[in-house]
Computed example of a mutant assay.
Amino acid sequence: MELRHLRYLVAAAEQGSFSGAARRLHVAQSAISEQLSDLEQEMGVQLFTRSSRKTSLTPAGELFLGEARRILADSERAIETARRAQRGEIGSLSIGFFAGSVGLNFPRLIRSFRRQHPGIRISLVEMTSTRQWQALVSGEIDVGFTRRVEPEFRTELISELIHQDPIFAIVPNDHPVVPGPVDLRDLASEPFVLSSRDTSPAVFDKVIELCSEAGFSPRIASISSVWSSVVLMVQAGEGIALLPLNQQQYRTRDLAFCPLRSKNAFVDFVMTWSPQHESNVNRSFRKLVKAHSTGSVVRL
């Protein structure tokens, strides 16, 4: 049994004759008659009562007609579902992010995508950059917002620059360098609190690079895995820190966030995905992100 058998049956029932069904479907009348006879033989059920004037359904045919219409309607819905999936209008999307850099525009971006694509189920998963790269390769998430991808993942992942986050010196409010801009050489004797390289290699490497360009190696007092802990340690007097500005938390009491004089005092914030797990939903989301991103340094 094929869908065309059901279409022929519905047309013949609604037109009251095989000739009427043939005109409606633009096929030969003999094809209608032959296909419906084949259907009856396959089922072992007489569906039509045939006469020279009219073709009508048997009681069994009447019951079968309802089921045929349901099957055809289900098939049309299935086809439309596939087409909508092909257009990236339905499906699911898992997005990795880390709160330290997505910024205030990220929630608006997600809400905008939800409004434009109500048929897509979105899940947000907070992960460090390192964890996101692993999850993208495995297909655990579909797209990630991370720092610059480390070399070991660059053959498997594609990245697109969203913006560049400026790095600030985080110091006590009464520090002599406040309000900046700060020449890093003035901080050479200070103990430093660093963000862990295991969780944020791009930031760790950038701090070491900036200090090296200023002519010194930082005296590391402590290392922490999250932005908030680094700030807390600075508040506690453990040392000073160099971090990308977290626009959601930078108005922390007792601390000053001072810009640096160095022209390359920034780290990339990128959107990352795996071409091995590509989808139209993913493409639709990236298109929206690209339309909203600047690809430039974020400044206050």
Results as ranks from 00 to 15, higher is better:
1 M>A: 11
9 L>H: 10
9 L>P: 07
10 V>C: 09
10 V>G: 08
14 E>T: 08
15 Q>R: 14
19 S>Y: 01
24 R>S: 10
36 L>F: 01
39 L>M: 15
44 G>S: 06
44 G>Q: 09
47 L>N: 13
52 S>I: 06
58 T>E: 03
58 T>H: 07
61 G>D: 09
62 E>R: 15
63 L>Q: 14
69 R>W: 11
73 A>C: 05
78 A>N: 12
88 G>T: 08
88 G>V: 07
91 G>Q: 05
91 G>F: 09
91 G>P: 06
93 L>E: 08
99 A>I: 04
102 V>G: 06
106 F>M: 02
108 R>P: 03
110 I>G: 13
112 S>Q: 07
113 F>D: 12
113 F>Q: 11
129 S>R: 00
138 S>K: 14
139 G>V: 14
144 G>M: 10
145 F>L: 04
146 T>G: 15
150 E>R: 07
153 F>G: 10
154 R>Y: 03
157 L>S: 12
157 L>Y: 13
159 S>Q: 15
161 L>V: 14
163 H>M: 02
166 P>K: 00
168 F>Y: 15
174 D>N: 00
183 D>I: 04
188 A>P: 01
189 S>P: 05
191 P>A: 00
202 A>G: 12
204 F>W: 00
208 I>E: 00
213 E>W: 12
216 F>R: 01
221 A>T: 03
224 S>V: 04
245 L>I: 14
248 Q>F: 09
253 R>G: 06
257 F>Y: 14
262 S>A: 15
263 K>Q: 14
264 N>G: 10
265 A>M: 13
266 F>H: 15
267 V>M: 10
272 T>V: 15
273 W>V: 12
275 P>W: 12
276 Q>T: 12
279 S>G: 09
283 R>Q: 14
284 S>T: 11
292 H>D: 01
294 T>V: 10
296 S>P: 03
297 V>T: 12
